[in-house]
Design a protein around this nucleic acid. Structure first.
Lengths: 204, 204
DNA sequence: ATATATTTGTACCAACCCGCATAATAAAGA
DNA sequence: TCTTTATTATGCGGGTTGGTACAAATATAT
């Protein structure tokens, strides 16, 4: 359980892994191969842990996936939120997309897109808990962008008029597509053009 | 092989299945569960065929998936193309999205979204042939929409100015997101609002 | 030292996986 | 009727799956 901060040194044999770095590795495997496409052997190899330790730390395979999803959402949510804080809406959207594209094209092998859009969506039909988690994450990003657009409208920033919520959903829709296009092999320049065109459409 | 029309009755035991309806059933299973999440038993049950017959008709599991993908792309490509033929660009885009949303929300259980966007994307990192097929399908839809936008611009139809290719990619990006939002459980009204907002943004 | 607590490593389990080998079946041709 | 051809049906074989039991290992507490 270990309450995170200082540790009063536990009693038994010490862990040979760091929970956070292990979870990062697990997230990366799921990110690349998806949930159904990933085996516990894959996970064990990536995390450098054997199965009993994995099971003890994260529960079963679904538990590992949820933990990975949560980590991904938290980290990339922070990044995107930060990008949205740029001075003008147009700059905010461009930074937002730019940052996302950076992530989507990362990875050792072929580009991985977004863990949420490119792997959780697939499992959403068969697993209602994954579907809820997915919906919640999408809604969170929608809300963040809607808030930013509403702010621009309130500030009299150059922005297309109309319902901020609906405009925001269009903006995040393009984000989703950037993820899947990246995974499909689109080149960065193509993605950036789509991003800039969208930013122009929404932020005047 | 059977060249589709009349048949000169083959010599051996007659087939107990119809290749087209079987492939439709196979497409539906993959559509719901994805490639990795679908077993041959699932496929056999859905198609009402036993494994050797499946193997004889479509090759291995990947072969079945490619056939399903091709069928899906051909059918929905026809539908979308037809929707795009509406008189004005705005009507065309709205029909295009509306038709897509209809499909994305269909299915016995929970909504399935789009076979390409919601299942092929996941496998794209690990299977370069699937990645190519995916990229080709995306490009085809992009091209169809780009042609429709270019036509509107040429005809002086009310349309946002700018590169037709880039605008089209924004439009299809929203299509992709509609698919995944449907699978995530979004309600029809939400999807329709996104669709109308996008059509307004692009077609003035 | 000895006991206690916690984690690791090995190895195993039953279930499932995909693909195929083989035999039974159902038609046409001779 | 008997052969030939094409399909269906059964079921197996080797490998992989997710999950766990159990003993060895490594720390603290007494």
């Amino acid at each position: 359980m270990r309450t995170s901060t200082k540790s009063a040194r536990q009693r038994g044999r010490p862990r040979s892994y760091d929970r956070d770095v292990a979870l990062g590795a697990i997230r990366d495997v799921f990110w690349e191969r998806g949930f159904s496409g990933t085996s516990l052997d894959d996970i064990a190899a990536a995390a450098g842990m054997n199965r009993p330790s994995l099971y003890g730390a994260f529960g079963d395979k679904r538990g590992m996936y949820f933990a990975a999803l949560q980590l991904f959402a938290a980290e990339s949510g922070r990044e995107l939120q930060k990008a949205l804080e740029a001075a003008t809406l147009r700059e905010a959207l461009e930074a937002f997309y730019s940052r996302a594209i950076q992530d989507y094209l990362s990875g050792n092998g072929s580009p991985r897109g977004c863990l949420v859009v490119c792997t959780a969506v697939t499992e959403a039909t068969g697993d209602s808990a994954i579907r809820s988690a997915l919906a919640a994450i999408l809604a969170e990003v929608d809300a963040a962008v809607a808030a930013r657009i509403a702010r621009a409208q309130a500030e009299g920033d150059r922005c297309t008029s109309g319902d901020a919520t609906a405009l925001a959903r269009v903006a995040t829709s393009v984000l989703h597509s950037l993820a899947l296009r990246a995974r499909a092999g689109a080149r960065r320049s193509e993605l950036m053009t789509i991003a800039r065109t969208t930013a122009a459409l929404i932020a005047g």
